[in-house]
């Protein structure tokens, strides 16, 4: 296959292309590698040249109850927020997939828009509402906001999976005597499971990445922008590097799951339905 392609492309261009890919990956990976590397460096501030290896930031992390507590909180909030967003998203995706009605495009746009609104504005807007309800500064509030930004991804991914479903199996279910609900539960849902699982994993990861915000919001500082502002002004502890590395590690595990479930949807969707 690749030789065929290369026949259409000059060797020079191919070499340049591979070189460019290499550079690109270098750019993409550099900060991550730096992050991981410096979490092991024996220095207060990451500098060059290398001063030495140490595990003390991880030790400090483990003894810092606050950081771990927040990590724990995230591990509760994120899967939950992802689950809520996925369930709501599944039903919405099903309705969008099956029905045609005036205003459908508008509704679809409404569902997608939350992911485009910058967290800055969302944070400001959300806190405006929450402070009136006296709900600000709580873990619960994080849960509520996160569901809003996770829903678009969930709806998009599940819609993608549903779009690949052979249209006649739902009709066949009705034809054989199933009413709408039975067909939804016994035929559509089983088909959608890979999409639902992938959406949940992806949503989990997005929410989990928001760990830093959660660390502040659920701590002493109540308002989001103030917390970030303070954080940026303060000294940064290398323990944060350690946290970042741990977050990255957990994400890699989730990533494998996403890769196994999601990419087949994105890339080979057509062929998997052919197997029918």
């Amino acid at each position: 296959m690749s030789t065929q392609r290369k026949q259409g492309i000059d060797l020079g261009l191919a070499i340049a292309g591979w070189g460019y890919l290499l550079l690109g990956f270098l750019f993409l990976m550099l900060p991550i590698v730096t992050l991981i590397a410096f979490s092991f460096e024996d220095a207060r501030f990451p500098t060059f040249p290398w001063t030495g290896w140490t595990m003390r930031w991880y030790q400090e992390l483990l003894s810092d109850g606050r950081l771990l507590q927040s990590l724990q909180r995230s591990l509760i909030v994120s899967p939950l927020a992802a689950a809520i967003a996925t369930v709501i998203g599944f039903f919405a995706a099903y309705a969008l997939n099956r029905f045609n009605f005036p205003g459908k495009n508008l509704l679809s746009t409404l569902f997608i828009v939350p992911i485009l609104v910058p967290p800055l504005i969302l944070g400001v807007a959300f806190l405006g509402l929450l402070s009136r309800l006296n709900l600000q500064g709580q873990v619960f509030s994080i849960l509520l906001t996160h569901v809003v930004i996770l829903m678009p991804t969930a709806i998009a991914l599940i819609s993608l999976r549903l779009a690949q479903m052979p249209k006649d199996i739902e009709e066949a279910a009705w034809n054989l005597g199933a009413n709408e609900w039975q067909a939804l539960y016994r035929v559509i849902l089983p088909w959608a499971i890979p999409g639902i699982a992938g959406a949940w994993l992806l949503a989990f990861t997005f929410s989990f990445d928001e760990f830093i915000i959660a660390w502040f919001v659920s701590g002493f500082q109540p308002t989001l922008p103030v917390s970030i502002y303070t954080f940026l002004g303060a000294n940064l502890s290398p323990s944060l590097n350690a946290i970042g590395t741990i977050v990255f590690g957990i994400s890699v595990v989730l990533l494998t799951g996403v890769e196994l479930l999601l990419l087949p949807l994105l890339l080979d969707g057509r062929s998997s339905s052919r197997e029918m």
């Binding site: 993409l28 990976m29 550099l30 900060p31 991550i32 730096t34 992050l35 410096f38 990861t205 990445d209 760990f211 830093i212 940064l236 944060l240 590097n241 946290i243 970042g244 977050v247 990255f248 994400s251 890699v252 989730l254 990533l255």
Partner: peptide, 13 residues
Amino acid sequence: TPFWTSYILRLYA
């Protein structure tokens, strides 16, 4: 992959 790391920490890096 960069998606799977914290944005703030990436900036810090």
